[in-house]
Write a protein that binds this DNA or RNA. Structure first.
Lengths: 135, 135
DNA sequence: AGTCTAAACGTAACACTATTACGTCAATAC
DNA sequence: GTATTGACGTAATAGTGTTACGTTTAGACT
């Protein structure tokens, strides 16, 4: 498996991040656990602890509507605007993008309400181009 | 409990919708189940089936990031643009709003990708005005 | 009425997702 | 060298959601 080393990552964090990067798409915590059993993982908490840190570092995103996690699509990630996700309900493909303009409009609303925004979740469900093109 | 009758709702659906309306905020499916035990509810599926229909009717929204459900804030609901939610992480208050402009920008992106959008999830986490004002 | 069908319902068992609790280990700071 | 901190290992448990199977109810149609 590719290791995707990161200077600041511990061994477990690297393994979890590597499994997500290799998957090229979202995985549930338990799917990651199964993948990493051959690397000595035994319990969900090992995965969740690593995921907590990776999400904190911005290397991994959580997809709330799937209860799954995905590696950030920005190669040298670390520090960019909030992300949004288009999730194909047919093939499961997930496209990450960064709709700064839309997020600014949302922030305008929260500012007007005196709501201090800390995190945005934007997930779009639908059918991707290639699935929609099928007969 | 208020009954919030709705011509098209079955008894179970009315009970579930009533519990959510009375709560004035989000409830998990199991919280609803506990509330409705005194009305004869015995199993989670009774709640989930009713919720499925209520969400389909647009009377109830699912909050993905809370694994919870909330009654739509539009009194005579039924048929309006996609909703967004601002969730206070301190007091739990949820404000629903309808950011048509932001959603249009997201739709512009999906249209450009040939992604046929069917459902949007927008959930904003942060601290509401009254909680942020506290010492 | 009688019967057919579709939707909703009741119940039990199970599967999936996430956390709590408790103890250990290694690195660093004083 | 011991105190603190953060990561780790393991087990048990809590919380969320679904599958499977059978029954009931309400209309539609002879």
């Amino acid at each position: 498996m590719t290791v995707h080393a990161h200077p600041e990552l511990t061994k477990n964090q690297s393994l979890v991040f590597g499994s997500l990067s290799d998957a090229g798409g979202p995985l549930t915590a338990y799917a990651i656990l199964d993948i990493l059993r051959e690397n000595g993982f035994r319990a969900p908490l090992q995965v969740y602890r690593a995921l907590d840190k990776l999400v904190e570092y911005g290397l991994v995103h959580r997809l709330e509507s799937l209860n799954a996690f995905v590696a950030c699509s920005h190669k040298g990630c670390s520090g960019h605007g909030s992300a949004a996700f288009a999730i194909c309900e047919k093939c499961g493909e997930v496209s990450e993008f960064t709709p700064d303009d839309a997020i600014q409009l949302l922030k305008d609303w929260t500012d007007g309400k005196g709501f201090r925004l800390s995190r945005t979740t934007i997930e779009l469900r639908g059918i991707c181009r290639s699935c929609g093109a099928e007969t």
